[in-house]
């Protein structure tokens, strides 16, 4: 019984100290962003590996998600004779929810896990301590550019996901199922608000980009420097990112869309 209590106390303390380390890490990382700006080359390399390489999976998933939405929406809406509102349904669900959430989940799986593994391996092969020996701050040189790149590419990837999804919905809706194309677009324009829908979607994606990059980089930086430790850290990145994204999405949705 005492042992159990001791164990409980120990693990609680461990998780709080991890949260503390993560917060401290985030502050260091944000402080390091200032020194990235004079060296855009570092950022550019990371934008390539985090953003450009994630583009393919994001665009293909976006296309299929949009097509499925178009198909499912059509079957339900045609019961009410409201096929014309298919555009509203596809666009609203993509821009408000599916765009930010699904692209953040894909981003965590595609780019977040890679970041964790990369940083963890750098730690295991003592590249990070090597840098410190050469008086190069690994946070400024390695972590901050990656953080900034993740943070910047997320809204862009989300916008592309939504656009491709809306076009996918249109391909299925008006191409295969015969919904009027003009109705698809005009109803969408009439019902979607720039501020309420588009800007809120962008805010969501920025928050998700922030949280996924933070988790991925911290897990890598904090990993036990063995092969097993890195594999666990990578798993934790994906699992924790997914939890935080879905949980935060609920909170953000309640805040943004709750009062009307």
């Amino acid at each position: 019984m005492i042992e159990l209590l001791a164990h409980l106390g120990k693990s609680t303390r461990a998780s709080f100290s991890k949260l503390g380390r993560a917060t401290f890490f985030l502050l260091q990382c944000l402080a390091g962003i200032g020194s990235v700006l004079p060296r855009p080359r570092l950022l550019l390399n990371q934008l390539y590996s985090v953003g450009v390489l994630s583009f393919l999976i994001i665009s293909i998933s976006g296309l299929f998600v949009g097509m499925v939405l178009g198909l499912q929406g059509f079957y339900i809406l045609s019961d009410f004779g409201a096929e014309e509102t298919l555009g509203v349904m596809v666009a609203a669900s993509l821009v408000r929810e599916l765009g930010p959430v699904v692209s953040a989940l894909l981003f965590a799986g595609r780019a977040g896990s890679a970041l964790t593994a990369e940083i963890g391996l750098m730690k295991a092969t003592e590249q990070l301590s090597g840098m410190e020996m050469m008086a190069v701050d690994p946070i400024k040189r390695i972590i901050s550019p990656r953080f900034l790149a993740g943070f910047l590419s997320m809204p862009l990837l989300t916008a592309l996901f939504s656009v491709i999804g809306i076009i996918g919905g249109q391909i299925v809706g008006s191409g295969l199922l015969g919904v009027d194309e003009g109705g698809y677009w005009s109803q969408m324009q009439a019902k979607l608000d720039f501020h309420d829908d588009i800007i809120n979607g962008v805010i969501k994606s920025v928050v998700f980009g922030f949280i996924t990059s933070w988790i991925a980089l911290f897990e890598g930086y904090d990993a036990v420097p063995t092969s097993e430790g890195i594999s666990r850290a990578t798993t934790r990145t994906v699992v924790n990112s997914a939890f935080s994204i879905l949980g935060l999405d609920f909170i953000l949705t309640a805040l943004m869309f709750g009062d009307d």
Binding site: S153, P155, V163, M188, Q189, D193, F194
Partner: peptide
């Protein structure tokens, strides 16, 4: 492409 996507959302999709 990302910025163009945002513009597309702003002009073509919303009001």
């Amino acid at each position: 492409a990302g910025i163009a996507g945002l513009f597309f959302l702003a002009l073509k999709v919303s009001n």
